[in-house]
Structures are given as C-alpha cells and as structure tokens.
C-alpha cells in the first residue's frame, strides 16, 4: 500500500502505523505562520524595516520546501528532514535531470498523494547560480538581487515570480507528508513587495 494510504489507513485503525519515529525524525519545527507586513510598521528606520522584512521572508526561503531544490551541489534534498534525494538525481543540463532519469520520470504535473509524490508542471531544480544551501540569509539576499544570479529579474520581476510561478506556489501546497512553507503565498508576496518598496536591504550577516 502506498505510504500515504498507509497513514490514512492507520488513522482509520485508530492506531499509528510505522513511519513516524526514528528515521523519519523531522527537521526542527519551523514557524508555520508569517508576520503580516503591517506588524513591521513599528520599525522606524526604513533600512532596518527592510532587513526585518527579509528576515521574515527567510522563514520561507530557508524552509525545506524551498531549500531542498536550491542545493549547493547538483543533488536535491527531500523530506522535511532534508535528506539527500533517493534515488540519486541530479540537476543535469537544464535543471530537469539526467538522461533516462528526468524529473518527469517520477514527478507528474500535480502532486500524487496516494504515493506521496509531489508534482508540478515544470518540476525542476533551481540553477546552480541560485543555490541557497549552506548560505547565510545575507548571502541569499544579495544573490536574489543579483540579476546575474536570479534569472535576470528586477525586484518587480522577483515579486511576480514568487507570486505567480506554480513551482514556487507549490511550496504552500506540497501534498501529503510534507510540511508547507510558512504562511501563505499572498503573505509572502506582500512581504517581498514591502521589502522591495523599502529598498530591498539585506541583512548584514
């Protein structure tokens, strides 16, 4: 039986089946919500406010849903515990995997919850230039703004990307067995817009 089925079946049994404890120990709990933009209004200094807004965005950026596919190496990670993807898959020439092991070999256009396989119309790995893994929030911030490393996007383009790209939006609807990114895409988009409007300042470190 698919593990998704297994869990729901187990719930039906009134008992919890295998899969919860040891190996599947999850990453430290992350904030499930995002602070609304308005709550940053108390920060008088615009630059400080911008930095604070970005730090809040960091809860999403550094969440497993986003970080897993912005790896430092050619290999993505998976699960909330951020283990290396099994089987071994790589970015490949165009971010869509290796010959005979393209992302689409397993990932369809939509999540397939019975088998807990996530999916999206353009399931792919972020380009190496957009690697976030192992970087500080400050470094990620500078990288995000660098048009050589962000897909040639200006700030408006970035906001549009995170609010309309289906693969980014997938982070909030990741399917069975995965924790969604904190907050909502609308909240995240609003934070980013506010960050852009406040000068898109980056944390110092």
């Amino acid at each position: 039986m698919r593990s998704g089925l297994l869990l729901s079946a187990a719930a039906g049994f009134g008992l919890c089946l295998a899969g919860s404890a040891l190996t599947l120990a999850q990453a430290p709990p992350t904030a499930a919500s995002l602070r609304p933009v308005e709550s940053f209004g108390t920060i008088a200094n615009q630059r400080d406010r911008s930095v604070a807004l970005f730090a809040e965005m960091g809860k999403v950026i550094q969440h497993p849903r986003c970080m897993n596919c912005h790896p430092a190496t050619e290999r993505p990670r998976q699960t909330d515990a951020r283990r290396l993807h099994q089987p071994l898959v790589v970015r490949g020439k165009d971010g869509h995997g290796a010959p005979a092991m393209a992302c689409t070999t397993c990932h369809g256009k939509q999540n397939y919850d019975p088998a807990r396989i996530p999916g999206d119309g353009h399931w792919a790995l972020a380009p190496a230039s957009m690697a976030w893994e192992g970087k500080s929030l400050a470094q990620i911030c500078e990288q995000l703004k660098d048009q050589n490393r962000n897909g040639s996007r200006d700030l408006a383009g970035l906001v549009k990307h995170v609010t309309t790209d289906t693969l980014v939006l997938w982070g909030w609807k990741p399917g069975a067995g995965r924790e969604p990114a904190p907050g909502t895409p609308e909240q995240f988009g609003a934070l980013m817009q506010a960050w852009a409007d406040t000068g898109a300042a980056c944390p110092a470190s």
């Binding site: 369809g108 939509q110 397939y112």
Partner: peptide, 13 residues
C-alpha cells in the same frame, strides 16, 4: 517515449 514510473502516474494524467 520518455521513461515514467507507472506506479505513481494516475491514469488521469
């Protein structure tokens, strides 16, 4: 023509 794992591909897709 592309390899796909049929166990996680719903017929609807």
């Amino acid at each position: 023509g592309q390899p796909v794992r049929s166990c996680v591909t719903p017929v609807s897709a």
